[in-house]
Amino acid sequence: MNYLGKILAIAYKDLLHEYRSRETITTMMIFSFLVVVIFNFTFDPGSSYALEAAPGIIWVAFTFSGMLGLNRSFIYEIDKGCFHGLLLSPVDRGAIYLGKMIGNIIFMTIVELLTLPLFIVLFNLQFSNYLLQLLVIIVLATIGFAAVGTLFSAIAVNTKAREIMLPILLFPVVVPVILSAVNATGSLLRSDDWSQVFAWIRILLAFDVIFVAICYATFEYVVEE
């Protein structure tokens, strides 16, 4: 099996494991839904405050639920030494990283796509004209978040306080992703000029390219003793 085939085998294994256990996505989804619903109680739907806060709220839901997913990403690999099984196989460490990252991106995207309709309905938002642009922002931000998160999850899983270690490591690095995603979503909501939205999308694109490359190259040193 070629390089790509091994990456996909790892990602497929993660999907199959999740399909059977339904542990990660369920946890992420419940958390994400709760964030949206609880914030909805604090604002009058359709009010100007709600409109202003909405981009921040949706990205709070996405980032924190994503964090839950990333935290679990390596925990079940550690459980029966399966991660050692991966490292012992004749697969480039970078391929293991990419396989795990793809799995995380898929989990996060599923949760985000399920949360989005609830968010739009509860906050009475008009995204219909910009849905495609919003999806582009979500996908790009998710790639950046998962790229760094997968690497840090592999580091955090071997620490005692892994649940708290991951956010401590991850958030400072993904600040550009969260800022860009919130601002781009806000620009869409305000029907700003496309050039303003695209400026944030360019930052997301640059972040994705740079950090996928960096994390791919450094993963080997993170997992080897």
């Binding site: 294994k13 199959l16 494991h17 059977r20 256990s21 079940y76 459980d79 029966k80 030494g81 399966c82 050692h84 099984g85 012992l88 196989s89 004749p90």
Partner: peptide, 17 residues
Amino acid sequence: RQRIGVIGHSTFLYDEL
């Protein structure tokens, strides 16, 4: 790694598969 097999007290097996 293609030539090495490892058996430990951990099984390296996924419970849900």
